[in-house]
Design a binder for these strands. Structure first.
Length: 528
RNA sequence: GCCCGGGUAGCUCAGUCUGGUUAGAGCGCGGGGCUGUGGACCCCGAGGUCCCGGGUUCAAAUCCCGGCCCGGGCCCCA
């Protein structure tokens, strides 16, 4: 008690956490549910090392991932704690450890991953992932099954969710038909995703302003607009001859953003609206005139392609068929894109067959990761704060080949178990560890041995029980048993024990019975 | 890296704006009321370097400066 807690320097590192019994129980519960669903679909569990050669993750991931890994040097090369589990699984397959002739290969995993990032709600440096990889089929029915598997998993956990479905193959198909290099495609797709999230943000601000027009929100809006304004001014000042003048002139600087608090709400919203257009324009300038950095130098996207891609941002709706109709119109000149749209059409039919009917189809959804080649999807659970995404996945047909394995297509997804835990905890009713059925308390000190004997007998018979170990007096012992929630207490009293019996007290209703020691096990079994 | 909020008893927190004798509450813990009986009973008790360092002041948990740590948000993702 008098220990100096503050002198204790050893605590769990930032971003990690200790899972207490209640947490572990919930985690195992989720694991069990997911295992059940995965195995019902024919997936088999694998486990890969917690660390891998740094190269495995560095190979295809962007610079940001590079800096967000736990890396350490060994005598046998640079190692990294895995930041995700898809790459290790692909490595495993590429190594030829699984018979790739008999397809499909269905694998699942549950394990920890590590990222060196700033911790936040639902985001840790050490976190749990559970996911599946379907290796072999390249057809839409495989995609559909994977998506429905993710949905069923959440339904099994009794969680309400929102599914967002996208497909980078359409945009890739379009770009390919326009002769855009694969690596440039990757850059554009992640840039598009980034743009998308910033545009959404502007919308959110605009809505929030109507409700809570406070200084805090305004200063946040200001901070968001400031860099945009800055870039506008720079672009205008630069006068790069290769950027068309009419584009630059559309980017009008607006010094009103420096004094937002003096403006009316509708004026601020108007500024936000104008900035959404400006953001898109600047993206075009960046892609098509300034160029995108790739391993082969700075490459530029043809302007007509750039503008076309921006149109993809509008291809988003819960009415999937309409999105596809619009997409056909937008990409009508590209046979490749049309073919992918046709395939998507097939996919949504299959989803319908699998009862996946409510989702947002969004062709602008690209998910930051660069290795996706087909469908991509995200699943969100409301109420989790900034980290609402509990699942992310998609198709990556080139990954295994990139690791030096055979050219096998695959689809997969991963759940964030930490977030699932949060989501379940928020529901108030979530599985909690059970208390042993019986608590054995002696009434006098000389009967402590007897208590141990009785407990041993019960445990032998498979009945979970605890013995009073704190030498509490009977009153405190019952109080403790009550607080812990034991259904039954066995009181060992001198007189009764002498004649071969104990007192069994039902803590629910308060009644107690004298039971002969040899009948205790059966008595408790019958009361179960 | 940037923007908020926080650090006071084992736990959850009040007190801080408006500085002032022994720093509080609830829960928990220990004991008693009751030789051997819990749940919303009563009484008593233990338990604190008020995150650290410096400054202002007759006087600092309280005000100022610096630091550390924790939580939330931006970015990115699970």
């Amino acid at each position: 008690m008098k220990r100096e807690n503050r002198s204790l320097k050893l605590k769990a590192p930032r971003g990690t956490r200790d899972l207490l019994p209640e947490d572990m129980y919930l985690l195992r519960y989720i694991e069990d549910k997911l295992r059940g669903v995965f195995e019902r679909f024919g997936y088999a569990e694998v486990q890969t090392p917690i660390f891998e050669l740094f190269e495995l993750f560095a190979l295809r991931s962007g610079d940001e991932i590079r800096n967000s890994m736990f890396v350490f040097e060994t005598g046998e090369g640079e190692m990294a704690l895995r930041p995700e589990l898809t790459a290790p699984i692909c490595r495993l397959v590429a190594e030829g450890k699984i018979d790739v002739m008999t397809k499909p290969i269905k694998l699942y995993y549950i394990g920890r991953a590590f990222r060196y990032e700033e911790p936040q709600a639902g985001r840790y440096r050490e976190f749990w992932q559970a996911g599946i990889e379907l290796i072999g089929p390249r057809h839409p029915e495989a995609d559909a099954e994977v998506v429905s598997l993710a949905c069923i998993s959440l339904e099994e956990l009794d969680l309400k969710y929102n599914l967002e479905l996208g497909d980078v193959a359409v945009l890739r198909g379009y770009m390919t038909s326009k002769g855009v290099d694969y690596e440039v495609q990757n850059k554009v797709l992640s840039a598009l995703d980034h743009l998308r999230s910033r545009l959404r943000k502007l919308e959110v601000y605009s809505e929030l302003l109507l409700k809570e027009n406070d200084a805090h929100l305004l200063s946040e809006v200001k901070r968001f607009l400031y860099p945009i304004e800055l870039r506008k001014r720079r672009l205008r000042a630069k006068v790069e001859e290769n950027i068309p003048k009419e584009l630059i002139e559309r980017l009008e600087p607006d010094s009103r953003i420096y004094k937002l608090e003096e403006l009316r709400v509708d004026e601020v919203r108007e500024i936000l609206k104008r900035n959404t257009e400006d953001l898109k324009l600047m993206e075009i300038i960046s892609w098509c005139y300034e160029g995108l950095r790739t391993s082969m130098g700075t490459l530029k996207l043809p302007p007509d392609v750039g503008f076309k891609l921006l149109e993809a941002l509008k291809l988003k709706s819960i009415r999937a068929h309409e999105v596809l109709e619009d997409a056909k119109e937008v990409f009508k000149e590209s046979e490749e894109a049309l073919r992918e749209i046709e395939r998507l059409n097939e996919l949504i039919e299959y989803l319908d067959d699998l009862n996946v009917k409510s989702y947002v189809l969004d062709l602008g959804l690209a998910r930051g990761l660069e290795y996706y080649t087909g469908i991509v999807f995200e699943i969100h659970v409301m109420g989790l704060g900034a980290q609402s995404q509990v699942c992310g996945g998609g198709r990556y047909d080139r990954l295994i080949a990139e690791f030096g394995g055979p050219d096998i297509p695959s689809v997969g997804f991963a759940f964030g178990l930490d977030r699932l835990m949060l989501a379940l905890k928020m529901k108030e009713i979530y599985p909690k560890p059970s208390v042993p059925m019986v608590y054995v308390a002696p009434i006098s000190d000389d009967l402590r041995g007897a208590a141990l004997k009785i407990a041993a007998m019960l445990r032998n018979a498979g009945i979970a029980c605890e013995v009073e170990l704190m030498r509490r007096r009977i009153r405190r012992a019952l109080s403790f048993a009550n607080k812990r929630g034991f259904p039954f207490v066995i009181l060992i009293a001198p007189r009764e024990y002498q004649s071969g019996s104990v007192i069994i007290k039902d803590m629910m209703c308060g009644t107690q019975e004298l039971v002969s020691i040899k009948d205790v096990t059966d008595y408790l079994r019958s009361r179960k």
